[in-house]
Amino acid sequence: MALCYPLMQIEIKNAVVTLPVSGRELFSIEHFHVPAGSKILIHGASGKGKTTLLHLMAGLLKPKTGSIKLGGHMLTDLSDDARAKVRREHVGFIFQKLNLIDHLTCEENVRLGRAVVPKDAMDEALRKVGLYERRQELSVKLSLGEQQRVAVARVLASHASVILADEPTSSLDSHNADLVMSALLSAAGSQSTLIVVSHDERLRKRFSRTLHFEDLVSA
C-alpha cells in the first residue's frame, strides 16, 4: 500500500545563528531552500556547525534573526512545545549515537516515534531494517549499528515527511554504514525529504545532491 503523507519543503531565510553563551555569531544563512522530497547530503569538516544547522531546521533552536519554514509551519514564530508538535507529526530524527532509550526494547523505541504506531507498521519497519526477530530485546544490548537501524525503523514507522540525520554512520564500520544508509534511503522513499549531515566521505556515492556546508553559510 502506498503511503501518503504531506510533502514538506524547508526554507531558511536571513538566519543568523549565535553561540548560546558568548553570543558570538557562529554562521549566517542568507537563503537555503530544500524542495519537498529531495535527498541531500551536507558534508563538511567537524565542528563547523553542521549539527547546529540540522537542529535549526528541526526547530530545536531558534536563530537570532531570520526565519525557518518547515512545510507550512513558520518554526521561528512557534513556541517550544508547538515546534515539538511539528517534529512529532512530521519529522524523523536520527543521531550519530544515543538514539534510543536504553531501558526500552527495540519495538518500544520504535513506538516512541508517534503517539500511536500501528503494530503492522512497527513490525514492517523492524523487518525492513532486519531486526524483527530481535524486537523484544532491550536496545542497550544491541550494537551501535543495530541501534542506528532501530532509529531508522522508528523513522520508518512514523512516516515522517522530513528525515534529518546527524552523522548517522560516523561511528559505524563500512558494512553497518551501508546497512544503515540503505535503510535510511528506503525509509525516505520518494516522498520524504531527507537531509543528512556528515563528514563521512563514504556517503557521497549514495546521494545525487551533495552540498558543502561552507558553501551554504557565511561565517
Binding site: A58, D81, F93, L98, L100, I101
Partner: peptide, 17 residues
C-alpha cells in the same frame, strides 16, 4: 543520567508537558 535520552525524546517531538 537520562539527560541525553530526554533530549532525544524532545528532539523526536515529546512536549515538555
Amino acid at each position: 543520567a537520562m539527560a541525553t535520552q530526554i533530549a532525544v525524546l524532545r528532539a523526536i517531538g515529546y512536549s515538555r508537558a
